Structure formats: structure tokens, C-alpha cells
Simulated assay, not measured.
Amino acid sequence: MNDAPGDMRNERLGPVYGIEDLSAATELRRAIADLERAADAWLVPSGLAAVTVPLTALLRPGDEVLTTDAAYGPTRRFLKRHLGARGVMTTFHSPDASTGEILAALTARTRVLLIESPGSLTFEMVDVAALAAACRERGVITIMDNTWAAGLAFRPLEHGVDVSVQALTKYAGGHSDLLMGSIAATDPMLRREIADTIEDLGWRVSPDDAWLALRGLRTLSLRYAEQARSAQIVTDWLQQQPEVSRVMWPALPGDRAHALWNRDYTGAASLFGVVMKGGDEAAAHAFMSALTLFGLGYSWGGFESLITHENGQISMRNRPPQIEGQLLRLHVGLEDPADLIADLEAGLEAWRAPS
């Protein structure tokens, strides 16, 4: 086949520049758009970039963002450090705020309501559909971080949200071997702003990573359901342990967010919080160090179980929650739940041991 110089800029023949999406990324974008029920979807190099790109695209100096005080730590940092230095103010509402209280916090300057439901680390939920409808009436754009539901158990666009983002690094990838985020939208104006920002910033993903994410999507629904089944077994066991004060997981009957989860969601991520009865950092670290199946790591959603200690991160909030003791965040992978419970028993034994 002979190359023709006149074809180099002919977009009808495909990408004309190497940074544009090639075949694997194009197929992945189509798959994510279908999953999210969106008119279009875009890929960026990380889950954090999936949040920061639409914020960058849609906010201008003098605008305001309203979001939960339980926001994902790096998102909070971007809002305060990067956008704050560029004239965009952020207001944080209480993670436990009602729909009316959140709407009352909107001002004439509020351009975006950034939703995390469940909230990071403490798993509060909000009435997404009610907030989206009210914001649309007020001309406020809604962006939702939907990583916990993986675009599978909850579809924000079907509930009136303008932009849905998620970290494909986690459940969609599923094998802890890639970094990627997705952004999905339907409104033509928002799509143009987001697409232009991605083009200007040069945020693209490699063909190999796109292929890995396509591979992960093939088993997403099976892994999501099986890991939730295992998480149910593990959380039921944890609630019976005398060292545990409570488990924060919306799928649990009795959880403060259960009614909203039961109404709107078709499944649950296998990520939850465990509040211990008292203890200190040394006890929490002893617990974690005694584990052999639960790895120490942040990037949940893959096949392996993980644990983190989170008292330090929740102390960064404007109004840190008053909890009964040490806060551990657990992610249940694809290991046998009986083996995971045996591992946690070893952790509890270390927790009980004298320092």
C-alpha cells in the first residue's frame, strides 16, 4: 500500500495524529459509552484525571464547586490547591447532609455540584436523582464519581447527572495492571467542552492499556457480583466480632445509607469501612501486619483483597467525623471468603495482643 501525502490530514480515513485514539481506545470508548448509557465517553490516564478534566473544562475564575467533605483525597487536593489558585472556590457540605441542606448550600456562583455517593472512606450516600433534577433547574452542572458502582450497579446519566466519571484502574481493569479513567456525557455542549480540554491537555491512553481494559470489561459483571457475595460473608462475620464497633457498607441492612442503596443500586462494590472499638495506630498497624491474604494497597477493585488505615485521611476534613476507634478500609477480592475470614482472625489476634 502506498502512502499518499494528501491523506495525512484526511480525518475521514481515521486518526491523523499519533496522540489520537487508535482502534483499541476507540472500541473501549464505545464500550464505556454503552455501559454508561452515554452519547460519548473519553479515556484519560488515571481515575483522578477523569475527575479533574471535566472540572477544568467547565469551571472558570469566579465559579464555585460544591462537594462533600468526604471527597476523595486527591480530588480535594485538586480543588483546593489547583483550582483554588485559579480563582475557583470550593465549598464542602457535610457528608450526612440532606438533599435540602445540600441544595441550600448552592449559591449564585455555584457552577458544579460534584457528587461522590457513596462518600470516600465513610460511605455516606445522597439522593442523586433529586439533586440532579434540582441542579438542572438551577443551571448547575452535576458531575458524579461513579467508581464504586463501576458504571454497572448505578448509571448516573440515567438518574439525571450530566457527567459520569470513574477510575477504570479499579473494577473495569480488574487485574491491578493499568491506570485509566473514563468520562461519559450526553449533552452536546458539555461533550464539546470536555473533548476540547482533552485535546488541549493531550490526555490519551496507550493502545496496550486500552486493550487491557477491554479485557477486564469482559468479566466485569461476574467479578463485581462475586466479590460482593464474598464481601457480604466477610461483613456479616466482622459485625459479630467483639473488637468491631460497626461496618460501613450501604449494602448492609441497618446501614444509614441502605435505603438509598436498596432503591437505586443493583449491586455493591466489595469496598467497605470497619470502625474498631477504640485502639490506636499501633494496634491498627499490628492488625494489618498480621494479614497474609489482605495486601496493603489503595487501588481497590481488582482480584486481590486489600486493606488501608484511614484515621489520618479523615482528620483532613473540615469536620472530621466522630468515630469510636480506628478506621480500616477493606476491599474483598476473589479469594475464598473462608480464607479471608481466617486471615482477619489472625489480624484480630494481633490487635488484642499487648503492644
Rank of each mutant, 00 (worst) to 15 (best):
S46D: 00
V234E: 02
L179S: 08
R155A: 08
I323Q: 02
M316H: 10
M248E: 00
W203I: 10
D343S: 08
T110G: 03
S355V: 15
P321Q: 14
C135K: 00
T56K: 08
S206C: 13
S46Y: 07
L13R: 13
Y171S: 06
A167P: 05
F92H: 04
E137D: 11
Y298I: 15
A57G: 09
E199C: 11
E310C: 11
P188A: 14
A195L: 02
D209C: 12
G312Y: 00
L59Y: 03
S305A: 11
V44P: 03
V53F: 02
E158G: 03
P95R: 12
L252A: 05
A71Y: 06
E193Q: 12
R86S: 13
D40A: 15
P15M: 14
D63K: 00
L340R: 07
P5L: 15
W261L: 05
G278M: 13
D187E: 12
E137M: 09
L212Q: 04
A268C: 07
R317C: 03
A350S: 06
H159A: 15
D187V: 14
R30H: 10
I102A: 01
I19K: 09
G151H: 04
D200V: 13
V163K: 02
L178P: 02
T169H: 03
D264G: 09
W351Q: 08
A231L: 01
F154A: 02
S270P: 05
W261F: 08
P118E: 07
H175F: 14
A104T: 09
T75I: 14
A213T: 03
S315Y: 10
M1Y: 02
G174C: 03
R60K: 14
M8L: 13
Q240H: 07
M180W: 08
D3V: 15
